[in-house]
Simulated assay, not measured.
Amino acid sequence: MTRTVITTEHAPTLPGAPLSQGIRKGPFLQVSGQLPLDPDTGAVVGTTVAEQTAQTLRNVTAVLKAGGAALEDVIMLRVHLTDPAHLAEMNDAYATAVSEPFPARTTVYMPLPPGLLVEIDALAVLDD
């Protein structure tokens, strides 16, 4: 099975970072961790967890779309937050963008670069 790199101008790229926006192999599409960056400018979008979660999920969705998938194809989302106190606000923004039945999810807390509050990656399975 061939491994296919997925790229789109509708999601940000990190110059010099040794990663692909997404990789598809067979029916599996893995979206690299997306940040709340504007794809056109690279600037951080929003100062709140809600704003940053919404932008991050827009970026995840853009990579999914470029790979022939949608949020409905996602079986697993991993959310990385900088502060456990942000969980409720992130959950509210998340539930606005991701509909039931919700994919499986893991939420972890870790440091991110200054100004960034959230990072999200996704694993989708497509019907071939």
Rank of each mutant, 00 (worst) to 15 (best):
G22Q: 07
G68Y: 15
S32M: 13
S99H: 14
A124T: 09
P12K: 00
L123N: 10
V108T: 11
L71Y: 02
A124W: 08
R58K: 06
D83T: 02
T48M: 09
P39G: 07
G22N: 10
T53H: 07
G67A: 06
H10M: 05
G26S: 05
P18I: 00
Y109K: 08
P111H: 07
P101H: 04
A70T: 15
A54I: 03
V125T: 12
R58W: 02
L81W: 01
K25L: 12
R78S: 06
A85F: 02
D121M: 02
L64I: 06
A88N: 11
L81A: 07
V79E: 05
A124K: 04
P111A: 15
L29F: 11
M90G: 00
T4W: 04
R24Q: 07
L19N: 03
Q52E: 04
A17E: 01
E9C: 07
L37R: 00
A88F: 04
A50N: 12
S20G: 03
P103S: 03
A17F: 03
M90H: 15
T61D: 12
E89P: 03
E72L: 12
P36S: 04
E89T: 14
H86Q: 14
H10I: 00
P36I: 08
T107H: 04
T106Q: 15
D128Y: 08
